[in-house]
């Protein structure tokens, strides 16, 4: 079995898969790759099933060698990729020879890149998932310099070509949330009319937005209630937080809107300081995720 030797983990690298679903009632966050379509593309390129585990690399900087020759693919935030010092490109499947060194530079845009290895990262699952949850720290520990990561046996051939996802991130489409009435006026219209900027404290738990505060008509804390991925929560300071994969399963601040599941990947790639726009969903109906 192959082993990846991590020489440099970069600012934050974690193991992720589709997440830990079905445990929210016990207080377990979902976790899972933040940019789902990019992770899925990487898995298809190396011939993995969709539920295999891969590496989510935040701000690049990962450097690994493999004990055996393996197929790898790097997707997500576009980042310079080198194998043994030679540029090999992004969004394509690449042969990493035994002992060969895969190196990711710093992303030109976006935040999170995905490194899939044929066979998947074969760490021990916790509650059915190999994802690291950065809120409760369930699952494997964050990848550290010097870590040795087991790789499973490939189950299918690599796919040399694939249809890329739509490249242009658009505004985040909104659905009404259960506590929309806690903001004066039509909260979806207000959100769509406000210019927000991604806050510095954004992470895998939530995308924090700076902008004109939303005026809450009721300021009392709610009794704790369940929250979904993409929930737009408004704390007393009026600055919205979009809940991402490691969000707490219950919360006491009102959820006034929900980002369409098809747009959550954009949240994974927005950098602190970048503008964020919301948009209304025509008719408020659910849309098929891309």
């Amino acid at each position: 079995m192959s082993v990846l030797h991590v020489h440099r983990a970069g600012p934050l690298t974690t193991v992720q898969d589709l997440g830990r679903v079905g445990w929210a009632h016990l207080g377990v966050p979902r976790a899972g790759a933040l940019d789902g379509p990019a992770a899925a593309l990487a898995q298809r390129l190396v011939g993995n099933p969709p539920d295999a585990a891969l590496l989510e690399v935040t701000w690049g900087g990962l450097e690994v060698t493999s004990s055996h020759a393996v197929w790898v693919a790097v997707t997500g935030a576009p980042v310079p990729v080198e194998v043994d010092g030679r540029a090999v490109g992004h969004d394509r499947v690449v042969r990493l020879p035994a002992g060969g060194r895969l190196r990711l530079g710093t992303p030109e845009r976006g935040v999170r890149s995905y490194v899939a290895v044929a066979g998947g990262i074969d760490v021990t699952p916790v509650l059915g998932s190999r994802s690291t949850d950065t809120l409760a720290w369930l699952g494997p520990p964050r990848v550290a310099d010097g870590a040795l990561l087991p790789v499973g046996l490939p189950t299918g051939p690599p796919a040399p070509v694939d249809v890329l996802r739509p490249p242009a991130p658009g505004p985040l489409r909104l659905h009404p949330g259960p506590r929309a009435d806690r903001v004066e006026g039509d909260v979806l219209v207000r959100l769509a009319a406000t210019s927000y900027v991604v806050g510095e404290a954004s992470n895998r738990v939530g995308l924090r937005l700076d902008g004109d505060p939303l005026p809450l008509s009721v300021r009392d804390e709610l009794p704790s209630e369940g929250a979904v991925l993409g929930a737009v929560q408004v704390p007393p300071d009026g600055r919205p937080v979009v809940f991402l994969a490691d969000h707490p399963p219950t919360g006491g601040y009102p959820v006034v809107a929900v980002v369409d599941p098809g747009d959550l990947w954009c949240c994974a790639q927005l950098r602190p300081g970048e503008p964020v726009r919301f948009a209304l969903t025509p008719g408020g109906g659910g849309r098929t995720p891309r």
Partner: peptide, 26 residues
């Protein structure tokens, strides 16, 4: 309500009771 929903075999990814609510997700 959450216990009733689980016994009824509802197809939801998550059934999450809160203080005065039950969330049905997925």
């Amino acid at each position: 309500l959450a216990a009733y929903a689980r016994q009824a075999g509802l197809t939801a990814l998550e059934i999450v009771p809160g203080a005065t609510t039950v969330l049905f997700d997925g």
